[in-house]
Simulated scan of single mutants.
Amino acid sequence: MTVASRLSKWSFYLIFFPAVLGIVGWQGWSWWSWAKAPVQLPGSNLEEATIQVQIPLGTSIEQIGRDLEAIGVIRSASAWNLWARWLRLRARMAPETRGEFQAGTYALSQAESLSEIASKIWAGEVVQLSYTIPEGWSLKQMAEYFEARGFFSAEAFLAATRQIPDDDFVWLPPNLPHLEGFLYPDTYQLADGVLTPELVIRQMLYQFEQVALPVYEQRQGQTNLSLLEWVTLGSIVEKESVVAEERGLIAGVFTQRLQRGMRLEADPTVEYGLGIRQTQEQPLTLRQVQTPSEYNTYLNAGLPPTPIASPGVASLEATLNPAATDYLFFMARYDGTHIFSRTLEEHNRAIAQVERELSNRQPQAGNELTTE
């Protein structure tokens, strides 16, 4: 090979390799900029927008990337995969950084870079979840709440409530079609960041066992109500009692009616059976009240087959210790309070009084007031 040939060959290497390195460097910088750049979703504020992302146990790295890209938290699942491989390689090379991507629920900001998001999931910086179920909520309302919070679907929750865990909670009444009434309303915390319908149900059943069940067991010899009847009556009292001071009196009215063989005629039972909710603007119609349902206490004597909501301990206690009263009727004023009556004649006057109080609103055809 001549000197000229050797010089030509080295010239080629001197030109080719810097060019390749330049291209690789440019590609790396482009990827780094792409990974670092925050994602601006339409109409979002990068300083405020956060998304709760749940990563189930056993989710692959690739699936995590696809999920994050799908909801717009990162721009590129491919970039995520490359960065994840780098974290794993670094963990093998440096013992102090060893770890793995961890399951859980994460609060991810759209202003965070890909590397920041990956580091958070690698370190297991899960959020402490909490959820609050108010007294008087039905299973349907709970299901809608959990779905709206993004924890799991309403359908999944309702399906789980039909699986009765009576092996673990042996005190549950036999042959329950669902767990309505037995999921105790409260605020719950979850430390590990993974929320499932089954976990929620077990937490709430355990709280019922700790808070409500002892109330019944302490008075079991002093009441003729079975556990199912107690919770069912308590759920009706809960739905009717807006003002706490009236709770014992409302329980007393229902107790009197049951003892006398009178129908309860409780609006919330009709609403539950029809899957509706009346308001001041749209009270129950006579047609709805006359619609047959196993929950319709205007048509059926006694208690409905199951609770209609989750009662709190105050309503449950009231059913065991109702106020001594000779009231047999009450009429809602639509401000949370009621007018209580001893006779049907008094009750009819109360109805007329409420109609006068509401006369400033335009009545809707067919929406006659109903009463207890």
Rank of each mutant, 00 (worst) to 15 (best):
S138M: 07
Q210P: 05
T223V: 07
K140G: 09
L176T: 07
G150D: 08
S153C: 14
G150I: 09
P177W: 10
F208N: 01
L213T: 11
E155W: 10
A159C: 03
I121R: 01
D167A: 15
D167P: 07
T132V: 12
L205Y: 03
V215Y: 04
V126D: 01
I201G: 00
P165R: 13
G181W: 01
T132L: 08
I236F: 11
D168G: 13
I201T: 00
E135V: 10
K120W: 09
Q220L: 13
I164Q: 06
M204F: 02
I133A: 03
S226A: 08
Q203G: 04
R202I: 07
P185N: 09
A143L: 02
M204Y: 00
E155T: 15
L225C: 03
V194L: 14
V242H: 01
S138N: 05
S235P: 10
S226Y: 11
L213N: 08
L129Y: 04
L183W: 01
P214H: 10
E135R: 04
L158H: 10
Y188N: 05
S119D: 11
E155F: 13
G193N: 00
P177I: 11
Y145N: 12
P134M: 06
W171S: 10
P165V: 12
D192S: 12
V215E: 12
T232R: 00
A159E: 15
G150C: 09
A148Y: 09
Y206R: 15
V127Y: 06
E229K: 10
S130L: 03
L213G: 12
P134E: 08
E155N: 13
V242G: 02
L172S: 06
A143N: 01
I121W: 00
R149C: 12
L172V: 13
Q203F: 06
S119H: 11
Q163W: 05
W171P: 07
A123C: 08
V231C: 07
I121V: 15
R202W: 11
W137M: 14
V237E: 01
A159S: 13
E155V: 13
Y216G: 05
T232E: 07
W122H: 05
F169V: 08
A143K: 01
E229Q: 15
V126P: 01
S119T: 15
Y131D: 00
E240S: 08
N175Y: 14
V211P: 04
V194F: 06
G136H: 04
L227I: 13
P197Q: 00
V211A: 10
V170E: 11
D192I: 11
S153T: 15
L172D: 06
F146L: 03
E238Y: 01
P177A: 07
W122M: 07
V127W: 02
G181N: 02
E147V: 11
W230H: 02
S241I: 03
I236L: 14
R162H: 09
A191N: 13
E155S: 15
T161L: 05
Y184K: 03
Y188T: 04
E240W: 03
G234D: 05
Q141H: 12
L190P: 02
E238H: 03
V211R: 12
N175P: 08
M142N: 05
A159H: 08
S241K: 02
M142G: 08
D192W: 10
E238G: 03
L195E: 01
E238D: 12
F208T: 02
Y206T: 13
N224L: 09
V194D: 04
